[in-house]
């Protein structure tokens, strides 16, 4: 169709003029911040392990994640996390703290719509897919392992 051809031509025309993200600086920031958050996680892990040597690694791991999640929610609450995200990009999205931020930020944002329809309903607008796909995938893995286990 003629219209489609024209649209394609225009898209191409626009594509050529798109401003480019500064590739390497943004990559570097993502690398540095992402690495740093992981190191903080390792630091928390080692500290808990040192203070409570009797705990199993698995338990220490859970505590570590809970502490990171707490810190990220807090930083979201005081309005710092979005500033980190502004320059770190994926560096602050991919660590578990990014998940925490994506739960906390809509909760804060929709507070004015009330606790039930605001905070509670909107809490999972961004993180919802993470939980839904994660749980579905774990069920799938469970089914596969169950079938394998039958033989």
């Amino acid at each position: 169709m003629d219209k489609e051809k024209m649209n394609m031509a225009y898209s191409k025309f626009v594509e050529n003029r798109l401003p480019k993200t500064k590739f390497f600086p943004s990559l570097l920031w993502a690398f540095l911040v992402g690495g740093l958050i992981c190191c903080i996680g390792q630091g928390i892990f080692d500290s808990i392990g040192a203070i409570f040597p009797s705990l199993e690694d698995k338990v220490v791991q859970s505590y570590t994640l809970i502490i990171i999640i707490f810190l990220a929610s807090f930083l979201t609450g005081i309005g710092v996390y979005d500033r980190i995200g502004n320059f770190a990009g994926a560096g602050s999205i991919v660590p578990i703290s990014g998940f925490s931020n994506s739960v906390a930020s809509p909760a804060l944002e929709f507070k004015r719509e009330g606790v039930i329809f605001g905070v509670c309903v909107k809490m999972f607008t961004i993180a919802g897919p993470v939980i839904v796909t994660g749980i579905s995938a774990s069920i799938l893995v469970g089914i596969i392992y169950y079938i394998i286990g039958l033989f």
Binding site: L18, T76, G79, Y81, N86, P106, E109
Partner: peptide, 17 residues
């Protein structure tokens, strides 16, 4: 922003366009 895009406190980058 809250109607069309993301919550204000979400840490993400704005695309260059």
């Amino acid at each position: 922003e809250r109607q069309f895009r993301y919550p204000l406190e979400l840490g993400c980058q704005r695309p260059p366009t």
